[in-house]
Design a protein around this nucleic acid. Structure first.
Length: 937
RNA sequence: GGGUGGUUAGCUCAGCGGUAGAGCACUGCCUUCACACGGCAGGGGCCAUAGGUUCGAUCCCUAUACCACCCA
């Protein structure tokens, strides 16, 4: 088959993916031969579309899976999607909003039904996009929904595990229900966990408010100990509206200004009551006035203090953050920020407001809605974390779970060492409803179903199910074992748990990684995975975070398919939350992508990701790199084209009885291939995908294409039959191996090319996917050949360099004269790359010629052309100057007695050889310059 | 405030005790029969700063500065 002149990815990609998938080649092996190698895909949200972070981590996972599959392992890349409670509920609520409805108009049952419909329709988008990337997920595995998208965290099978876990944790008293202060999102109307709250630094106001003494001014001292008279206690707060719920004011027990006042009461302005002054060491004496209010029900720090001092917890907010009936009548029904203004105005009027100053502070915002989170005293379900945390810490400390890069384990440890109980209930409709029921007296019953509860507890009265659902992460944490069939004791649990490696972002180490480790240990006694590879965060080329409002996001599909600038503009500016971003985005796109994005193809995108996957925390995605690797794919394509042109239908040495002669160059490329294979293996073992990519790139381009293919042309043209056979065999076999070597990273192009190349190399097989992965064979490493070729390359580089310096066309071959006879390998290379004809002459004769002389080691050479004397003088002077700089450095080093004594003999010897080389070359160069001295230009 | 990572060529990053590297960008020459998504050659760096260890430091140690992120 004749290949196109350049690589056009599209046809190749769609054809091969469909073939791989329909052939069932992604599946695990039923016969379970080979050791198990499995990866759990971090299940993307059903609401999601593929972004650069996904594409990056999925490229790495797919490379690992393909690598291990080719090595003969029983691979299972378990995939699925996550029901993503809040995110999904928001998506469907927005759709309702467009129709002017809310979820309450539908009612819970109809709403949930609607979400399911949406999921069936749109939920597989991301899995379709993953296919474009070439991800060889085991789609049919655990595919209960029949969409070839793996499991769904709310499908029947996964839900069963969730209920089982909840019930058993409850029975083990590791889940409890209680009234606690939690982070409350007043817009969503639900509790959220600590992890879902982001702290944002803003400049707010610190107000000082006077709480007067009921019995008149009291004596005190100021900071410097001077006597003063106090009208009351002046507290400092950033949230004046919460004073309506104050239970006390607090001072530090050792604060001389206030110590004598502890135990007295003060009047709470605007409210018809007094509150006590208490002593608590949590108060910072130097901060503000050294006196704070205690609002137990609306502040996390105060909550602890209120419990310590037995203060009443007064709730003054409704669940949508309005003042409730516990607040003074005049403020009731006001939103918290409206109330703040009203309270301040009232305080001002009553002359209670002492001071207001700008104050840098941190505001907690809901990660989902961005609204300021309100600490709210509500009934919630919690998981006890202390015991789990210990087991999680042990798993990493003992090395059962290893982080790559290793330093992430400190982040993990730090969180687990300071963990709080996990609030798992959410006041939403979309999610796993908590399997708990209440009787009419409010007693709680937990069970697998209502009927189980009725039977077990012999309930007579009417039961009501807890309306809350579970935090999405509660089900996600079970994925490593629930996806394998738990709670049944399945064979897959034995085979694929623990999985081999988890590839994920650092942002979910707490949300997910840690919890999976703890939950797996608890329920299966096994860690969920052996390795955790924390991938870098993908940024734009300038290191900026990718965000839709900046317009610097890239869609992986656009990189694969290409997109023109108009379509890109349109796409980036539709559906914006803020219209004023539009101009900024347009500007960014017009300056960064004036011509849109060219189509690079999936392989080039994947190779780019791999080559950028070092151990640093961020990955700056550079289109230039992507273009470079597209070029690499084209190079590989054309090298194959060349090989096919020269081998198809010809004797490639398949017939063992015919003689085959391998040259030093043949042996060298085979040897170099072994080294590359070893490098690639090391790279995969260390998760250094950048090294894997670099090794492949260098081998294919720098060694095979730049040297071997050029030499092969010469060998094919001039060699005898056995030599030609040897060359063809080497060309084909090395290429075939290189294709297999590169397949895990660039699957499409390698499959396409392998189909043509493999038969010539005597390989059979339907797909490269199942061809064995190349393994370095040390016996094929030929150090003598490597050494010889390294020297030949040095000589040739010198010759080419001289040619270029002489301004001879570097591409045109020029007759050359060498000072001594040459090795065959040198002759071949020189004819292939530099010269039309080669003659051998003595050094003296060369020197007598009126031409620039090149020196490489002990070899001198010159081109048979007219010389430009002035240019040659310049060239020699420049080279002499370089050596004159190097020589004193080497002398100094060798003149240092300690260096000679202490440095390893090898290093000293090397340094001596270097110096000797410099000196002899310098002498020759000077001699040349000398000869030119008398000559006119 | 606590922690983690970073600072190497114009850009993005490797390297890591013993002659500073890659890709992209740049300069010159070249449409040659695999590839102009190409070939050949070249220019470009006091490896953040200051100390220390060492025969020798970009690399190890200690400070400092700056950048980024995480936690409170």
């Amino acid at each position: 088959m004749a290949l196109d002149k350049s690589f056009e990815p599209h046809a190749v990609e769609s054809r091969w993916y469909a073939r791989w998938e329909s052939a069932g080649w992604f599946a695990e092996r039923a016969d379970a031969s080979g050791s198990a190698y499995s990866i759990q895909l971090p299940p993307p949200n059903v609401t999601g579309t593929l972004h650069m972070g996904h594409a990056f981590q999925q490229t790495l996972m797919d490379s690992l899976i393909r690598y291990h599959r080719m090595r003969g392992d029983n691979t299972n890349w378990v995939a699925g999607t996550d029901h993503a409670g809040i995110a999904t509920q928001i998506v469907v609520e927005r759709q309702l909003q467009e129709q002017g409805k809310t979820r309450h108009d539908l009612g819970r049952e109809a709403f949930v039904k609607r979400v399911w419909e949406w999921k069936q329709e749109s939920g597989a988008t991301i899995t379709r996009q993953m296919r474009r990337l070439g991800a060889s997920c085991n789609w049919g595995y655990a595919d209960t929904e029949g969409q070839n998208a793996g499991y769904f965290t709310m499908d029947e099978r996964m839900s069963r595990a969730v209920v089982e876990v909840f019930v058993s944790l409850f029975e083990q008293k590791l889940i409890y229900r209680g009234k606690r202060l939690v982070n409350w999102d007043p817009v969503l109307g639900t509790a959220v966990s600590d992890l879902e709250v982001d702290s944002e630094e803003t400049v707010g106001t610190m107000w000082q408010i006077l709480y007067p003494f009921p019995d008149g001014p009291q004596p005190s001292t100021d900071k410097d100990g001077n006597p003063v008279s106090l009208r009351g206690m002046t507290i400092a707060t950033t949230r004046p509206e919460t004073m309506l719920a104050d239970g006390a004011v607090a001072v530090h027990p050792d604060d001389d200004r206030y110590r004598h006042l502890i135990g007295k009461r003060v009047e709470l302005p605007l409210c018809d009551r007094t509150i006590p002054i208490v002593a608590d060491t949590m108060v910072e004496r130097d901060f503000g006035t050294g006196c704070v209010k205690i609002t137990g029900a609306h502040d996390f720090n105060d909550y602890g203090a209120a419990l310590r001092h037995n203060l009443p917890l007064i709730v003054i907010f409704t669940l949508d953050a309005k003042i409730n009936e516990n607040g003074p009548k005049q403020f009731q029904g006001m939103d918290r920020y409206v109330a703040r203004k009203a309270v301040l105005a009232q305080l001002e009027r009553g002359q209670f407001l002492v001071k207001a100053e700008a104050h840098k502070m941190v505001v907690p915002k809901s990660g989902r809605t961005g609204v300021v989170v309100e600490p709210m005293l509500t009934d919630q379900w919690f998981v006890k974390m202390d015991g789990w945390a210990k087991s999680g810490l042990d798993a990493v400390a003992s090395g059962k779970v290893k982080f790559f890069p290793e330093h992430w384990s400190s982040t993990y440890n730090h969180w687990l060492e300071n963990i709080q109980d996990w609030c798992i209930s959410r006041q939403l409709w979309w999610g796993h409803q908590i399997p708990a029921w209440y009787d009419e007296q409010g007693n709680i019953y937990v069970g697998r179903s209502e009927s189980e509860v009725i039977e077990k507890y012999k309930i007579k009265s009417k039961l009501t199910r807890d309306p809350d659902v579970l935090d999405t992460w509660f089900s996600s944490q079970l994925v490593p074992f629930s996806s394998l069939g738990w709670p049944d004791k399945t064979k897959d649990l034995e085979t694929f748990l623990p999985s081999s490696v988890l590839v994920t972002g650092f942002d979910i180490i707490f949300f997910w990684v840690a919890r999976m480790i703890m939950a797996s240990l608890h329920f299966t006694g096994k860690v969920p995975f052996h390795h955790v590879y924390i991938n870098a965060i993908v940024r734009d080329a300038e290191g900026q975070k990718m965000s839709k409002s900046k317009g610097n996001t890239l869609d992986p599909i656009d990189l694969i398919d290409g997109i023109d600038v108009d379509a890109l503009l349109k796409k980036s500016t539709t559906g914006l939350l803020k219209a004023d971003h539009k101009a900024k985005i347009e500007k960014y796109i017009k300056s960064h992508f004036p011509d849109g994005i060219p189509s690079f193809g999936a392989d080039a995108l994947r190779f780019t990701f791999a080559s950028l996957a070092n151990f640093s925390r961020t990955l700056n995605f550079d289109l230039g790199r992507c273009e470079g690797y597209r070029n690499f794919c084209n190079k590989l394509w054309n090298a194959t084209r060349f090989v096919l042109m020269n081998t198809e239908g010809q004797d490639c040495g398949a017939d063992q009885s015919k003689p085959v002669e391998l040259s030093i160059w043949d042996k060298w490329i085979i040897s170099t291939l072994q080294r590359t294979e070893a490098e690639v293996e090391k790279g995969f073992a260390e998760y250094r995908f950048d090294n894997v990519a670099a090794a492949i790139y260098r081998f294919v381009w720098d060694e095979y294409c730049d040297w071997y293919v050029e030499i092969a042309k010469e060998q094919l043209a001039k060699g005898n039959e056995a030599q030609q056979r040897g060359t063809r065999r080497t060309l084909v076999r090395v290429l075939e191996t290189a294709l297999r070597l590169a397949h895990p990273v660039i699957p499409f192009i390698t499959e396409e090319l392998w189909q043509d190349v493999a038969p010539l190399a005597g390989k059979k097989g339907e797909t490269i996917m199942h061809a064995p992965y190349p393994k370095s064979q040390p016996e094929k490493i030929d150090e003598a050949a490597e050494k010889e070729i390294a020297e030949v390359k040095r000589h040739l580089l010198a010759a080419r360099n001289l040619k270029s310096e002489m301004k001879l066309p570097t591409n045109r071959k020029t007759p050359i004269i060498f000072s001594r006879t040459l090795s065959t390998s040198m002759m071949t290379a020189n004819t292939a790359l530099v010269s039309t004809s080669i003659s051998i002459s003595s050094e003296d004769e060369i020197s007598r010629l009126n031409t620039p002389v090149g020196i490489s080691g002990d070899l001198r050479f010159t081109f048979k052309v007219e010389m430009d004397v002035a240019a040659e003088r310049e060239r020699l002077k420049k080279e002499i100057a370089r050596l004159e700089g190097e020589i004193p450095k080497a002398h100094a080093k060798l003149g240092n007695a300690s260096f000679i004594d202490r440095a390893p003999a090898k290093v000293v010897e090397q340094e001596r050889a270097r110096l000797a080389g410099f000196e002899s070359t310098l002498a020759k160069l000077r001699e040349q310059l000398q000869k030119l001295a008398g000559k006119n230009d």
